[in-house]
Computed example of a mutant assay.
Amino acid sequence: MAAILAALALAGCSQPSTAGKGAPLHVLLIPADGGTESGTLADYRPIFAAVGKSAGIDFDLKVAQSYGAVVEAMCNGTADIAFVGPVTYLQASQRGCADLLAVAVKKGQSVYYAGLFARKDSPIRSIADLRGKSVAFGDVNSTSSFVFPVTMLIGAHIDPVKDLGALRLTGSHANSLAALIGKRVDAAALSFDSYDKAVREHVPGATEVKVIARSEAIPYPPIVMASRLPAELKQRLRDGFEGVAKAPGVTPEMIRGYGGAQVDGYDAHFPAARFDAAARKMALLSDDLKGEILKKSAER
């Protein structure tokens, strides 16, 4: 079944890459904000256009249908570059498929945060108040809409399977926020970047939401490249991202990151070791626990 789902998720991305043969590099983006082409493509087209202009490289951008589909595409050769979450990067890296390419920098930092949110009119004030409440999470492979929020619950001695009421896996940050605003759940897990984007875009009801818990700092979602790419091409990509903010003809508005937010630039020498904390969080979620969460989420 897993193989069938992966194949379906990769529909439209099944042709092997022709990287290094003069064709555009295939870029696959995780469906961080709703899973639609338009929103996520609008977020990342400016930065890839800027890098392409400065480095003389063409890119073909597509949005995957799931986080897992991005890992499979990197590993089966149908994607050359990907925008991923820290956990998705680690999954691909552990399979020998992906190398770090670049990480966005804003105000001297390359971090973001996961959060648990409730409606302002809710009596929920803290994680402890979530016992018996319904909670929406994003994709099971998402760092900030699943892995870190679940470990936050565990750290507060709340068993996500036994202690929560209904548990919903919506597939994306935006879907979880919509479920919260629509009063289909009592709380929702998503990144602050996704929440800020919803407020920035005047999503109805977004300002009627409050934060009940904030994660520790998480390494910013990276852009990664396939390990199989030629060394010369990898260096051109690193140089392109590292220098993009100062490249001729590139305006500050083109330097975008997660959620379409403007950033200062990209660090193409970001130490892979900084993702070790995310790896430790990922290790806390055993396959058995994830299986139980998936089972619970299917209950109605």
Rank of each mutant, 00 (worst) to 15 (best):
L8I: 09
R184L: 15
A64M: 07
D60F: 14
D288V: 07
N175H: 13
K210V: 02
A283M: 02
E253N: 09
P271C: 07
A98M: 12
P222R: 07
D43M: 11
S176H: 13
Y89H: 10
R45F: 06
H157S: 09
F117D: 07
P46L: 09
A198M: 13
V140I: 14
A179D: 01
L284T: 00
V84K: 15
C13E: 12
A7R: 07
G115N: 06
G171D: 15
A283P: 08
A188T: 05
L10H: 12
R280Y: 03
P160E: 09
D193F: 08
G165A: 10
I181T: 06
K106E: 05
M152P: 08
K246W: 13
E201R: 07
D58S: 10
Y266I: 06
V111M: 11
V199P: 12
K290Q: 13
P230I: 08
M1P: 03
D159S: 15
R184P: 08
K162M: 01
R274W: 08
A104R: 02
I57T: 05
S286R: 10
T36N: 11
R228L: 00
I81W: 11
M1R: 12
D43I: 00
K62A: 05
V147K: 08
A104H: 05
S286F: 14
I181K: 10
R45S: 15
A273D: 06
R238H: 06
P219A: 06
A278Y: 09
D276E: 10
V250T: 01
D129A: 00
A179M: 12
G291C: 06
A9C: 04
K107E: 13
V135R: 04
K295W: 12
D159N: 14
S54H: 02
M282E: 04
K62E: 15
S66C: 05
A23E: 15
V70R: 00
A32N: 11
D129Y: 05
G260S: 09
